[in-house]
Amino acid sequence: MKKLFTERVGIFFMRATTYLVVAVIGWILLDIIIKGIPGLSWEFLSTAPRRSGAEGGILPAIVGTVYLLLGTLIIALPLGIASAIYLSEYAQQGRFTNYVKRGIITLAGVPSIVFGLFGLGLFVIYLNFGASILSGSLTLACMTLPTIIVASEEALKAVPRSFREASLALGATKWETIKYNVLPYSVPGMITGSILAIGRAAGETAPILLTVAAFYLPRLPSSVYDQVMVLPYHLYILATQHPEAALIRDKQYGTALVLLLIVLGFNLIAVLYRRRFRKKYQWN
């Protein structure tokens, strides 16, 4: 009897904490959606801000965020996948490789402001890219690389050894084996993990604050050396730095909702992509 009671209490608490977490997230989402929808309009999405963002829209910040994410994707994806292939397929598994892998996992946990300062020092100042899309993308790429590498390694590890053996036993070289019978099955997992990592980077403020974000720049960028406005930073300014902060709730919530939708959109792409490829190459 007593055991049963303890178990029931335990399950009750676990269920309660789960509901609590879901409730908090739901509350935040609902709050943003309900208060953000009135602020959304075609004008809000398609025009530049006026009067420091108190009027007009957020188009430059949307464009800036999307450019930044695409830049990050283009830089980080090939580097991350290449490193993962090397680490899991070619590098001799030993103490050194282990240290490298552990180092990468540790990097994934480094605070984003540290990456921001690193980007400021290396890309903005030393390499003289200035505060620009290029510097920001490179910084975000550094920040997301560890996650991409780890996700890609997991995807490679998930490919059964028997496929590799079968291919090698037929006289394929190691690279042919990887190219034809490892990568095709692991790319979906790699892409999915990478998109999720970059989606998370979309909401980061600290790294871009130091390397790319413009306080107020109501025009679209014309090259990768331009500064841009970006949604998270714009939101921060509207909410805390703006002289009329209390009077422009609709702009603040509207911006938050758009940022949320972009991140969710990224995640949705990842999920749909994975589902499509799962069907094509299913082995278990």
Binding site: S162, F163, S167, A169, N181, Y281, Q282
Partner: peptide, 13 residues
């Protein structure tokens, strides 16, 4: 020297 394995391992193709 060809090889056939204990557990059949066709490629998922």
């Amino acid at each position: 020297v060809g090889m056939v394995f204990q557990k059949s391992n066709p490629f998922p193709k």
